[in-house]
């Protein structure tokens, strides 16, 4: 019943099969792209809507149906919104907090990560266990007593409560991530450094840290964005106008001009732009920074 296929027939069948296969993978790829584009549209819509409203003339933003493309583009919303509050002061305060707190977190987290990953000493595992437990400590529990401590120290009314704690080991997550990454570097690095006469301090600073680009950049971005965006901390501590940060400035806007959605969106957009730039520039490192640290659970 079955005769052997001739060479031509076999080739034809193979081509047809491959064709069908290619068709299927092409269909799959098409479907995947369709879903991806749909997801991207949904995810980008709020940002798009912020931009559209920020560029709509006063009076036109509250129209129904909504304006999907602003006409004309009201660039003057930005200077108008900026004029309504001392935004340069807020910007300065936000920058001071984000930069100084990030620096402290990166330095002290990488120190702790170095000790956990590269040195052997009694009590190491105990402290690392405490670090892991801190990952799950709800921050709310320490908010009130910390406020009381800072009040006793006379530091409320300054930027210090939002900076000082991060010079003490930053966040448990940062320590953890540094430790995971440092463990992936070969121990020969430390040994070679020791033979060359370098102490542990030199090994940490000029051997290990320069090898840690991805995780360093990842944490720098995470911390900066977190401090820049932080709302509850500033809300509690920064009660005078001269020490407020951008989130509080934008919030104040909401209280004063509840109906001016275009000005609100303009100010929200302005405080978002630096974050967008940082995330877009840093995203190349990001995936590597997380992926190489064994957060994959293995």
């Amino acid at each position: 019943m079955s005769r052997p296929l001739s060479a031509e027939e076999a080739t034809a069948a193979a081509v047809a099969a491959r064709h069908a296969g290619r068709w299927r993978t092409r269909m799959d790829t098409f479907v995947i792209y369709a879903i991806l584009v749909g997801v991207a549209v949904v995810m980008l819509f709020p940002g798009y809507w912020m931009i559209v409203t920020a560029l709509t003339e006063t009076g036109k933003e509250m129209s129904y149906p909504p304006v999907l493309f602003p006409q004309p583009i009201a660039w003057n919303n930005f200077p108008d919104a900026l004029a309504a509050a001392p935004f340069p002061i807020y910007l300065r305060n936000s920058l001071i907090i984000a930069v100084v707190a990030t620096a402290g977190a990166l330095i002290t987290e990488s120190m702790a990560g170095f000790a956990f990953a590269r040195l052997r000493f009694p009590g190491r595992d105990l402290w690392f266990g405490i670090c892991l437990a801190l990952l799950m400590l709800p921050f709310v529990v320490t908010v009130i007593p910390r406020f009381i401590i800072f009040k006793e120290l006379g530091m409320t009314g300054t930027l210090l409560p939002l900076i000082v704690p991060y010079w003490f080991g930053g966040s448990a997550f940062g320590v953890f991530l540094f430790r995971q990454f440092f463990r992936t570097l070969p121990m020969e690095l430390d040994e070679a450094a020791r033979i060359d006469g370098a102490g542990h301090l030199r090994t940490w600073w000029s051997i290990i840290l320069p090898q840690s680009g991805p995780v360093f950049v990842t944490l720098a971005i995470l911390h900066f964005v977190w401090f820049w965006n932080d709302f509850m901390g500033p809300l509690i501590y920064l009660t005078r106008d001269e020490i407020k940060t951008l989130p509080l400035g934008v919030m104040k806007f909401y209280g004063q001009y509840t109906q001016d959605w275009n000005y609100m969106m303009a100010s929200a957009l302005l405080m978002t732009v630096p974050i967008l730039v940082i995330v877009l520039v840093g995203q190349r490192y990001f995936q590597r920074g997380i992926a190489t640290t064994g957060l994959g659970g293995r």
């Binding site: 989130p247 969106m265 929200a268 995330v279």
Partner: peptide, 19 residues
């Protein structure tokens, strides 16, 4: 697409609350 999906999570909470 990964970046696009990640971006909104990094918006300042004040900004996304008002948006």
């Amino acid at each position: 697409f990964r970046v696009v999906t990640y971006l909104p999570s990094q918006l300042p909470i004040v900004a996304s609350a008002f948006i």
